[in-house]
Design a protein around this nucleic acid. Structure first.
Lengths: 206, 206
DNA sequence: GTCTATAAGGCGATAGAC
DNA sequence: GTCTATCGCCTTATAGAC
């Protein structure tokens, strides 16, 4: 009996462990979408991935740790999927439109993060600081892109780029909320597109 | 000893009971703001009004019943405070600006309803249907006011009044979320005002 | 790496005393 | 109208076996 049979290579063990963590994270996203963080128990997450409740705590040191891992994974995946960081000028509006169109295909993910964002409006919520930082980073990045476009003359001098950045993020969050409450009544992609078209015209004009 | 001393008039009993109900509702709003519906226990509500936990269930038949009473009271109060139902034409945008300015003075109330709206994005949440109906009613009312203004020529023919109604509500919800996460960084009243000014110009033009 | 068992406590709701 | 007591259940987290 070879040692490799009893004790598989370290690389294999590492990917197996990572795979289990991914399955737990996927189940947690679904659970948070249905009940929020406060309303979700580790036992329901455990059951849907086929582990016991302490089995979850072997992979994540606490319920809070599981939530943080969920939040960080989403941020990382979205950063890779969309070249938001690498886009300059008014093309950034096209990238945001792409993001909105993508979001319309991942209902559960949007639901999970809308519920968590709402919950985190409470100052003492576990994820309050995370969402505060996330908003601030997105606002300042977007405002910076717009301000540089304004310096190049692509945007009129009368535009408050910080206000517009906040408005764009607010429109995305708000439309997602209405879409989640009435998916067949509110076409969030179309309504966001109408908003962006009007915005583009105003930015050129002002 | 008069009967009135032992047994006060029915009207007095009625107002005392109503007063206690109001105190419970106020405490529930604060609790929901801090922990959401799922994260709030009747015991914490009871403690902050100086009753026992079963004392709450004497006034509201269940935790769900308490939440419904909170939701209905807010809708009723706001309907009375702002003459939204009685406003026609583009004046409706001024009333919405008033509402936003008022909201900036009642942080706890806004926090409570933002948390509850987020939680209720889950299809099985106790208040999902309530917020779905509320969104639909506000959208169709606002779209109707805009459409009638459009017929009178106050709004250009190229405007999709339904889309604009959804956008206005989305902007209010989204700005409130950012304000709650960073009250000193995001001036939601000013940013909403900039949005409305731009919108008014576009509506006249299109 | 996953389990069972358990500690230690919170939950909503009801029964019945006063 | 409000209480105490209690039922039955669920919660997170830890200890220790395998």
């Amino acid at each position: 009996m070879s040692a490799a049979f009893i004790d598989p290579p370290a690389s294999h063990r590492r990917t197996e462990r990572a795979r289990t963590r991914e399955r737990i994270l996927d189940a947690a996203v679904v659970a948070f979408a249905e009940k929020g963080y406060e309303g979700t128990s580790l036992a329901t997450v455990a059951e849907s991935v086929g582990l016991s409740q302490p089995g979850i705590l072997h992979h994540f040191r606490s319920k809070r740790g599981l939530l943080m891992a969920v939040l960080e994974r989403r941020d990382q995946v979205d950063r890779v999927r969309f070249g938001l960081d690498r886009t300059e000028g008014l093309d950034v509006l096209d990238r945001l439109m792409d993001l909105m169109a993508h979001n319309a295909t991942v209902h559960g993910m949007v639901q999970s993060f809308s519920v968590l964002t709402g919950e985190s409006a409470a100052e003492n919520h576990v994820a309050h600081a995370h969402f505060t930082d996330r908003y601030a980073a997105h606002r300042s990045h977007l405002a910076g892109v717009l301000a540089r476009a304004q310096e190049r003359g692509e945007i009129g001098t009368g535009v408050d780029c910080g206000a517009v950045a906040a408005q764009i993020l607010a429109m995305m969050d708000g439309l997602q909320l209405q879409w989640l409450h009435a998916p067949h009544e509110v076409d969030m992609v179309e309504v966001f597109g109408i908003f962006l078209d009007r915005l583009r015209a105003d930015l050129a004009r002002a």
